[in-house]
Write a protein that binds this DNA or RNA. Structure first.
Lengths: 209, 209, 209, 209
DNA sequence: TATGAATGAGAGTTCATTCAT
DNA sequence: TATGAATGAACTCTCATTCAT
């Protein structure tokens, strides 16, 4: 994902490496960090600016408003995850293997970026309700991967066919998601990815005939 | 839970039936309703007052501030649920039966009170992070019920003993929780309790040896 | 014109004399005064609040925003003038007498309230262009009085009938208006109403056959 | 009026034809246009820059600040008008003829440049109050022409000598000015210069003995 | 000369909370 | 107990101006 030109600027061709790209990413990182720490509504735009070592006004060169800053932060993180997930899952044949891989990927990704995990657990949920359906789209995509694997497993006869595919997907996602939540709230920062196998084990046992 | 005296009241013995209890509960109901609709931060105290047909200032006779209003609303709802859950579970012997009953109770309760469901899904999570550990306590209690049932099942040999009890509890809770979330976000309001069996089925199959 | 209830308040019946009316008028007066001194755009809302001895937020109990504050200030002043003008002109039979009276009234009113004069000279003009056609309406009414008198004079044969009524009205108004402007800009505060006769004399001589 | 060197330019002798003059004038034109459209305070410097196809910063090479940009724009337009007016009036002998010519010139000039008319009607007035007495000077000069003609007419006995020369000048100017204002606000863009004769007729009749 | 990304002071406005009634 | 007008701290966002390139 390329850092865009500042919003107000007219297009210009520059021979020197852009520094703005740097700023754009710094603001995004600072946003994740600050929103994770304080929550979207409690965080002030100037907190983000300060953490990004940027003037308040600079943020508005890149983002229309505070909300867009949150959305962009969430989306770019989510998009990166989905792109990786899609690629990795393609290489795996068995539905169970796919789900197992997805669980690991999910927990690894968030387990290695606690701030992002917090923002996704807390703010994404809010944004799904209130803000643009933009972010809802990501969840739909994610669930798409899960449901496809489950449906395929049912067709192949390895998963119980009497289960409703959507309910099963919710159980799968919910179980993983709750691991993240409890990890986020936990004081002792054990490696989140360690539990991936256990979770996958329970859910897959529940799905398999 | 008893409706308390307004905070600032001077000591006074009244022979008239309390109308304050009425107002107290109306404010609490209005709070759930408004917070569900707009979210805690977007909702204004005056919105709650208006929905409760009460003056803005009246709210501060019963609650120290906006935050306490949220906490109290969440807690009173949660306490009611936990009290019922505890009672009902006592009457059930088998660990699997307990979990099955809990799933149904959880989904029935929230499925019959959408606004409450929304507040718990969205605001409880936030409050667990930021506000008093007060609300965290409830979660701990809830998980206590789940973990006790799982541990008992393992001791009885009906649940696989190699599973980490806490992880299993997370899977159970997460699966149910995600059903609520997806129901809350779903446009089509199907009866949430209908899925209780399916969810319990998947998770229990995953737990049972 | 009655001072309205604060905007946010729910209707309430009070037996005590309202103090808010006091505040409403104080804010309006302060607005005229501050806008006269600094101009609408340079004046800060907090300047108005300070001059009215009121908190910043109080202004927003009575006015939706800064612009509405200006509009209301202008309109209430203008409405008072127009109401008086209409009444007085009714009592006068001859068209020339009416115009002469109007000139005096105009110059007396503004000459005795320099701040109002400034706001009308400077801000009304702007508002006529940019803001609601609300304020334009007032000008149309004023010109209505002038044009009616001119038309009547032409019908009676005392004013030259070859003159375009609208152009004549513009000359009349423009001459008076310019007297106000030059008085507003002048350092020496001579009584503005003193020049009413001279101005009326010149214009009426120009109109009469 | 010569386009000056950009303010911060280092001394340098250039053999190439000046393009800067081009930019200087483009900025001035853009300023008139944008200020006419939005008003001085609502217009942003970047609006002017955009309309002049120039970078924001470039404007500050030629003008100290936004205010100076307005003042210069007004002054250069006014100066051009005054220079032409002075020349033309010299060639006319009779005071009445001079005033008649001035009315036509005024209405022709503004009638053929609506944007300039708007800026002068709206912004000049403001600037006369708040900004440098710089612009006031122009008005004084203009009035000087009018008053000289009136005084001369009184000396020659063609204008009524009992009239106060300054009041008469105000009537003359106010009448013309109001024609411009009403034309500016009017939707139907009739030729402004067409009314010059009528206006001059009314005022001169008022002045003549 | 020219650019436009960056700055940051400062504006309008909101709203949780108070307190006189 | 109850009210709601009043408060003012604090927020988001704008935009004139600067300066490194």
């Amino acid at each position: 994902m390329r850092a865009p030109e500042p919003r107000r600027s007219r297009i210009k061709i520059s021979h020197k490496p852009r520094v703005s790209g740097d700023k754009y990413q710094r603001i995004l990182d600072a946003a994740i960090s600050v929103f994770a720490e304080k929550g979207f509504y409690v965080a002030r735009v100037s907190d983000v600016a300060e953490r990004a070592s940027v003037a308040d006004g600079t943020i508005y060169l890149y983002f229309r408003n505070k909300e867009e800053l949150l959305m962009t932060a969430i989306n770019s993180a989510f998009a990166a995850f989905m792109s990786r997930a899609r690629t990795e899952l393609e290489a795996i044949a068995s539905p169970a293997g796919k789900l197992r891989r997805l669980a690991l990927l999910h927990l690894e990704t968030l387990g290695s970026n606690r701030e992002l995990a917090i923002v996704l657990q807390m703010e994404l949920r809010q944004s799904v309700r209130f803000l643009v359906p933009f972010s809802q789209q990501h969840m739909v995509e994610y669930f798409g991967l899960v449901r496809a694997a489950i449906a395929e497993g049912q067709k192949q006869g390895v998963f119980r066919s009497e289960l409703h595919e959507k309910i099963a997907a919710n159980c799968f996602f919910g179980a993983i998601d709750e691991m993240v939540t409890s990890w986020v709230l936990d004081e002792t920062f054990y490696p989140l990815s360690d539990v991936a196998d256990s979770v996958a084990d329970i859910i897959l046992s529940g799905l398999e005939r």
